[in-house]
Design a protein around this nucleic acid. Structure first.
Lengths: 145, 145
DNA sequence: ATTACATCAGTGTATCTACACTTAAGATGT
DNA sequence: ACATCTTAAGTGTAGATACACTGATGTAAT
């Protein structure tokens, strides 16, 4: 017989609650850079991957493609990323502009402070195992249904 | 000397990515109930706490108060929650209506399927330790700054 | 009583999120 | 060549999130 779960143990709720609270912390640290935590993550990915298609970038960020499209519009308008032609006439490649690279440079030490603060708060062990669990989730969730 | 962190190990990014992906799973399961994962979590809290102030509810959900206000507007318009006078003339108490309770009843087995699916996917051990870590995060994050 | 402070809730604005649907272009089979 | 399928991206719509600010009510200090 399938066990009845306790709604307080909902993985979705607990993930989203932690997400909300932690995002507020990182956003506060990142404020002087002008980047949100979402934009910072996007810029980090772009910096590591180089010019990349929207679909590929969305996959890499575990983000719905159309969500990324909207998020890109903001930073494109600010001149922080450029979107040019891709491999073929369908796809378009996203790249960091010089201004985008500069914003990332400025954000990095701020992010580092937030990150160090989180590691200290949770302790390195808890922090590490949390990260491991979250990566497992991110890998497993898309296989559901 | 403070260690330089690796941006790929960002707690915020990994939390939000997992959050996005898992929310999609739960929302797909909850679809026939008409409730989103956020609304489901709200209804579970209301069901457990009984009529509760907006500020208290927000605290309990680890959600910004003004966010909850907007979320409440939707379900209030649908007649699923009622918002009446609270302890004093400032506060207002939120309660589940009969229609709200019915929606929760309908959603519960759907949620249970999603939850069981997640437990199976991660394995009970990983699932349990993830939950523990997330609760630690939710408790610790608000103490930062 | 009056002033000062704290608490509770709502609004303006902006970002983040994703489903359903559409359009355009490449790939495949006959 | 054509029809079909697949892939890449954008739009309409709607919900989720939170900061800064406002207004109203309660509480405390003098």
């Amino acid at each position: 017989m399938p066990k009845i779960q306790n709604p307080g143990d909902c993985a979705c709720f607990n993930l989203r609650r932690a997400s909300r609270l932690v995002a507020q912390v990182y956003d506060r640290y990142l404020l002087p850079s002008g980047l949100t935590n979402t934009q910072f993550a996007l810029f980090v990915a772009l910096s590591k991957l180089g010019p990349f298609s929207i679909t590929g970038l969305a996959e890499s960020l575990g983000m719905e493609r159309t969500t990324l499209t909207r998020n890109l519009k903001l930073v494109e308008r600010q001149g922080l990323v450029g979107i040019g032609p891709g491999k073929d006439a369908r796809s378009r490649d996203v790249r960091l502009t010089d201004a985008g690279k500069a914003a990332l440079e400025k954000a990095m030490p701020l992010w580092n402070q937030a990150q160090i603060r989180m590691v200290k708060t949770l302790g390195p062990d808890h922090f590490g195992s949390l990260l491991t669990e979250l990566r497992t989730v991110a890998e497993a969730a898309p296989t559901i249904q």
